[in-house]
Simulated scan of single mutants.
Amino acid sequence: MRNILLVLIMCISFAGFSQELNCNVVVNAQLTGNENLQIFKTLEKQLNEFVNQTEWTKKKFGPQELIECSIVINVTGQSNDLFNASIQVQSARPVYGSTYTTPVYNINDKDFSFKYLEFQNLIYNSNQFESNLVSVLAFHIHMILGLDADTFKLRGGETYFKQAQNIVNYSQQENFKGWKLEDGLQSRFILVDNILSPTYKDFREVLYNYHRKGLDIMSESDKEAKTQIANAIIQMDAVHRQRPNSYLSRTFFDAKADEIEQIFSGGPNVDISKLMGILNKVAPMHSSKWRNIKF
């Protein structure tokens, strides 16, 4: 009897560590004028359970390894079971030797509409379209997983990005925007296509060098860390030369602009003359932040 109880406790313990995310999902329906409708509260509750309780990978995550993220769905309109919305997705990862978490993914996906009936089952199938709501969420979750893995190991997110691309491929059969090449330069199709393209291999090296060789040594030597972070950002010039103002570059600086400003506005001095030129060249939309950097 004691052995049976021990096995049960072990199984429960391992099951508790099978999920990968600590994600807060918010459904904001203020723009519909009906934000108090029960359906939006039900949807929010179901989405939190779906995102946090689905086993997205075969890897076991301990409590301290869960990826912190947030998903905000801004519903702009509803007609029966059809909802029009945008979705803001953000994620962060801890920095070694500190209590600081660094933003990794920050994207506003505007091509988002979905069908939903209250209390309908939300089921993720890795190889089959179930609903646009599930596909869009699964896509961004795999982008979160892939980018997080890339910051710890060079090209460590390959498996997750390929699954995100698989979701794109099987979701194209449905009449929803964001899944096809013709849906514009800021679509889900473009995002994952670019990150898997050899053309943008430098981008993934930037992710690794910025985080693993830069931020993660900040507690040991903040001057060396700042130098490595500067060198990583300078490498974004290679990405810019391949495709000026690419979607990947924009997502990177949307996540990192505030952090870069803070890193280079205090602490030990390092040579950032080249860095400043690159920042203004590859991310001019954040020039107001770059002007605050002290050298």
Rank of each mutant, 00 (worst) to 15 (best):
M1Q: 12
R2N: 14
L5P: 03
L8Q: 11
M10C: 11
C11Q: 12
N22F: 02
V25K: 05
V26S: 14
T32R: 08
T42E: 15
L43G: 02
Q46S: 13
N48W: 07
N52Q: 13
W56L: 06
T57G: 03
Q64S: 09
C69E: 00
I71A: 04
I73P: 00
V75F: 02
T76D: 04
T76A: 05
N80R: 11
F83I: 06
N84T: 15
S86F: 06
S91M: 02
S91N: 04
R93P: 00
Y96M: 11
Y96R: 15
T99D: 11
Y105K: 01
N108P: 07
D109L: 09
D109R: 07
K110R: 10
S113I: 08
Y116P: 01
E118V: 05
N121E: 14
N125A: 13
S126I: 05
N127A: 14
N127Q: 14
F129D: 07
E130R: 04
A138I: 00
F139C: 10
H140L: 00
M143L: 07
D148R: 00
K153E: 14
Q165T: 05
V168E: 04
N169R: 15
Y170H: 06
G178A: 13
K180S: 04
K180A: 03
L181H: 08
E182F: 11
D183C: 12
F189N: 07
Y200N: 04
K201H: 07
L207E: 10
Y210R: 13
Y210N: 11
K213D: 15
G214T: 02
D216K: 01
S221P: 04
K223W: 08
K226D: 05
K226M: 08
K226S: 05
Q228G: 01
I229W: 04
A232H: 06
I234M: 14
I234V: 15
R241Q: 15
N245G: 07
S249H: 03
S249R: 14
D254S: 13
K256N: 08
E259K: 10
E259Q: 13
S265V: 06
S265F: 06
G266L: 03
G267S: 06
G267I: 04
I272N: 06
L275Y: 05
I278M: 04
A283F: 09
P284F: 10
H286V: 02
R291A: 14
I293T: 07
